[in-house]
Design a binder for these strands. Structure first.
Lengths: 207, 207
DNA sequence: TAGATTGTTAATCGATTAACAATC
DNA sequence: TAGATTGTTAATCGATTAACAATC
């Protein structure tokens, strides 16, 4: 059943449910209702139940969903049960903030390399991750099977690094700068745009 | 025409077009086609033209859209032409990275206050913004007409700050921690979840 | 049992897309 | 003129929602 590829919308929503489940587990809960997931994601509870019931009967009527079991099921559906290596570019304030947070680690992403061009930083550690020189990019991507590049660098150099990542074979880039990146069509770029989200939140607030 | 409230989808897409327009202008371009906007947003070019043509004939056939003029039009539609004040919580690595970037400023958001609880930081400056003590929150929100709170603080204290912001009357919160925040239904929370976006990018990459 | 919540149906609405005439 | 791109239509598909029986 449902052996087909997920639609983009379903995959995006399942990922968001997963985050709520992971965090709820951290907060000590063991089960959760579609209503509760809805409050944290803004997704209609009927749609949450619909999204999940397409893959099996994971819930208990009158009770809700067991969090541990549901995390396993959603990870299976998204096929992201393993660990995936990411490389972080830029060891400035933003890079260090990212390296020190659990925002990627909680979802099975491991920061396996941090790159910078500042010779003074190269060789030092951020937590337990050593900072390497940018010139080692291609080699590290290949030897550590890095699937994602995270750009915590100035907008002026973002395109250059994106080009080098593409040349090294990386297909997914997460861009914290506000630069617009041009990449081949088989490469996915996600740009962090907090202001964009605030803009439309503001619209609904002002209307 | 189209005096009704925008749907959530249209408002979200218009905000994203605005970011592409703003960045394209920075890069020195003066006009842009729906095809080019599509490449940077992933939104189908037909839909972009459709979204825009609902409000007027902004483009020139055979040429595209004038960037300056379109920025003005989209801002009018989103009713976000003015400047809006935001308060930043946390002057650590992440807070300093946000304060030092143009990610909010480019879209008419001004960081008018940074709060921290560390007495050693209070009174010092980040760029041209002074760090204030957290106890001044309510007073500052009222006196500076702050509409948005940005949380660059540990997950453990995020709910506490969210509660205080709600009590002070703030209706929009941008949350960089991975905490799940409970707020009244008239308050909007946006949580930055880079890992969530990577999760579903990975799904389509692995499939 | 009584209350709560899932799983599912059916109806509606908005998003998506291809196609193409209009026109710069 | 020729090429490019908008504005718009029509058709399809997925998202959204209310409602409610099933059942824990």
């Amino acid at each position: 059943m449902a052996a087909d590829r997920l639609t983009l919308g379903v995959a995006a929503r399942l990922s968001r449910y997963l985050q709520v489940l992971t965090q709820s587990k951290k907060m000590g809960k063991s089960s959760i209702s579609s209503q509760a997931i809805s409050e944290y994601t803004g997704v209609n509870p009927t749609q949450i139940r619909r999204d999940l019931s397409g893959f099996g009967k994971f819930g208990k009527r009158g009770v809700g969903y067991d969090i541990d079991a549901l995390i396993d099921e959603v990870r299976k559906i998204l096929r992201t049960s393993g660990t995936h290596n990411i490389a972080l570019f830029g060891a400035g304030n933003l890079g260090q903030a990212i390296a020190g947070s659990s925002v990627f680690g909680d979802h099975g992403f491991r920061i396996s390399a941090i790159f910078d061009v500042d010779e003074a930083k190269v060789g030092t550690m951020v937590g337990d991750i050593p900072i390497r020189h940018y010139s080692e990019l291609a080699e590290s991507v290949a030897s550590e099977d890095i699937m994602v590049g995270v750009l915590a660098i100035p907008a002026e150099v973002a395109q250059r690094v994106a080009d080098d990542l593409v040349a090294a074979g990386v297909k997914i880039i997460f861009n914290y700068s506000d630069a617009l990146l041009s990449v081949p069509s088989d490469v996915t770029v996600h740009t962090s745009s907090p202001a964009v989200e605030l803009l439309y939140a503001l619209y609904f607030y002002l209307s």
